[in-house]
């Protein structure tokens, strides 16, 4: 069975919508959660697939771009990459060429017309979790930190594979996405527990897929809540 994987970037496509506004609120909340030391490398993940982590990643990146910030999305979901679908790019170059062929990462970055830069996965890599915890990759992310205001990292769901936990160790903060009426509560909880056990800095949770009309627009498309990991 095929799946369509269409991603809406409402911040770009309908900037005046309440949905877009909710992503701006998300950006504000991330900023406010750490005023003195801004969080600049932000991971988007979820408990299970299709919960909205990629949609959250691309819309958050669009908010940064809209604010004139230099932003890049790293597709670190090496198992089921989808950023190329969201931006309709060919996934023929990417992290694979950096890791396997020692290409300069700058030659692999794609500049989208939205102003958002992208590092796709390229060809499939074996052992993604080993690649993602390699010094080579971590040093590359640190180097990009000098060149970008914000780095948004899309990763696999927490409960599927260990990759999301591996990445959570070198990002500044994690956004945890759950889909309204879809993500099972016990799964959402289990994923969160795993992130906590790995000492991830969970900035907040996003509830995706809320129908604005049905919820009378009171919270917009996304409900955002701070999540205190020290609790």
């Amino acid at each position: 069975m095929m799946e369509l994987f269409e991603y809406r970037n409402v911040v770009i496509e309908s900037p005046n919508s309440p949905e877009a506004e909710a992503y701006r609120k998300l950006e504000l909340n991330i900023r406010m959660s750490n005023i003195d030391k801004p969080l600049r490398v932000i991971q988007s993940t979820s408990a299970t697939p299709q919960d909205g982590k990629t949609t959250t990643a691309i819309n958050l990146a669009a908010v940064y771009a809209e604010k004139g910030k230099k932003v890049i999305i790293l597709d670190f979901d090496l198992r089921r990459p989808k950023i190329q679908r969201a931006f309709h790019k060919s996934n023929d170059i990417g992290l694979y060429d950096f890791v396997v062929n020692d290409k300069d990462v700058h030659d692999l970055i794609i500049r989208d017309e939205s102003g958002i830069d992208l590092l796709l996965t390229g060809h499939k890599l074996s052992y993604p979790h080993i690649v993602l915890q390699s010094n080579k990759v971590i040093e590359m992310v640190n180097q990009l930190k000098n060149e970008y205001d914000y780095i948004v990292v899309d990763t696999p769901p927490v409960l599927s594979v260990t990759d999301a936990l591996v990445v959570s160790k070198f990002v500044d903060g994690v956004i945890y996405v759950a889909a309204y009426n879809q993500t099972r509560k016990d799964n959402a909880k289990a994923g969160l527990e795993q992130l906590k056990e790995n000492n991830a800095n969970i900035i907040g949770a996003v509830l995706a897929n809320i129908d604005v009309r049905k919820s009378q627009g009171s919270y917009g498309y996304y409900y955002y809540s701070n999540y205190d990991t020290k609790e």
Partner: peptide, 12 residues
Amino acid sequence: DIGDAINDLTAK
């Protein structure tokens, strides 16, 4: 993945 193939071809 046929979907990925179609995506990559149409993107070019």
